[in-house]
Design a protein around this nucleic acid. Structure first.
Ligand SMILES: [Zn+2]
Ligand SMILES: [Zn+2]
Ligand SMILES: [Zn+2]
Ligand SMILES: [Zn+2]
Lengths: 160, 160
DNA sequence: TCAGTTATGTTACAACATAACAAAAAAGGA
DNA sequence: TCCTTTTTTGTTATGTTGTAACATAACTGA
């Protein structure tokens, strides 16, 4: 049943994504939607080339990497996926179905197994950080942090 | 005179780097030193390939990119340079000649002119951030943040 | 000197990303 | 509907970043 429930969750997230795109007045085409579906079913961050291969397996149709990059650019603009610049990989947003507005995401990247968690950080802490930085005359564009380390699983395995 | 004083500054930083390597019991070879000198004279972060080309111009000798990567790895281990993972570039540490121990550096990266500043952030704020993250079970490896935005110069130019 | 280690060079290739242009699909009005 | 315009997707070629594997050179310490 895990599989069925996972499937249902993906479908409901896709429905939310469709509504978000309709509201924004942009087109979530069949291919963009299919690519998002592929990414949603991954537990790890994926490179564009890995996604092209997974898409081929999932949908029985090959797709140029060039198109994958363009679709990822589109999805990232709509905040449906996030690009992790430090490792050149992409992850589906964990909050597509949330009603609240999209807060700046923070990512914890395991340097061993490459799993990625999208977490919330206290707004107050981020504000303090941002104010300290802007006091130097710099103007932050994004408060998306990408923090590296070990996930609990890999940490415990390394300790043994 | 600006050129002469700049030259002197670079020389004194190189002398500090030599002392640091001697203390650590590692070898700052002539090529590693020459590469560090090249990087010290840049005002922007440089990719490994850009550095290979600049090295060739500075020292009248070509150098394999493979060697540049290895030297940069060495210099980064000694905290003489920092790698900016988000943009795949390298920058000389701004504190080589400082006597105090090397704090975790924080970088402000201008997305327009690509200038990079190495700044201090209040330790307390970083601790709060780190504690929040570690409370989720994640184990941070580094607290080096790479923040993107616009430097004051580019910000004002964009506003006009 | 000579063996062992570290550093650097060479070649080949893998992985990531984009430029330039062509074809197809969708949108919108006469 | 038909035609025009715009957007999306495909194709080809190439640029950029990084590493593997192995050879040679330089240094170090008996
Ligand atoms: Zn998100
Ligand atoms: Zn892990
Ligand atoms: Zn530094
Ligand atoms: Zn700037």
């Amino acid at each position: 049943m895990a599989r069925a429930s996972r499937r249902a969750t993906v479908d409901s997230i896709l429905a939310s994504a469709e509504r978000a795109c309709a509201t924004a007045g942009v087109r979530l085409t069949a291919k963009r939607r299919a690519l998002l579906a592929t990414l949603l079913q991954q537990s790890q961050a994926m490179s564009a080339y890995e996604l092209a291969e997974q898409y081929r397996q999932d949908h029985g149709e090959s797709i140029p990497t060039m198109s994958v990059y363009r679709m990822l650019d589109f999805l990232a603009e709509q905040n449906l996926v996030h690009k992790l610049g430090a490792i050149n990989k992409y992850i589906a947003c964990a909050h597509i179905s949330c009603s609240h507005r999209h807060e700046t995401p923070q990512f914890l990247i395991c340097d061993d197994c490459h799993s990625v968690s999208e977490v919330e950080v206290e707004a107050e802490t981020l504000d303090t950080l941002g104010q300290g930085v802007e006091a130097t005359g710099f103007h932050l564009r994004s408060r998306q942090l990408e923090l590296h380390g070990l996930c609990d699983h890999c940490y415990k395995r390394a300790a043994s």
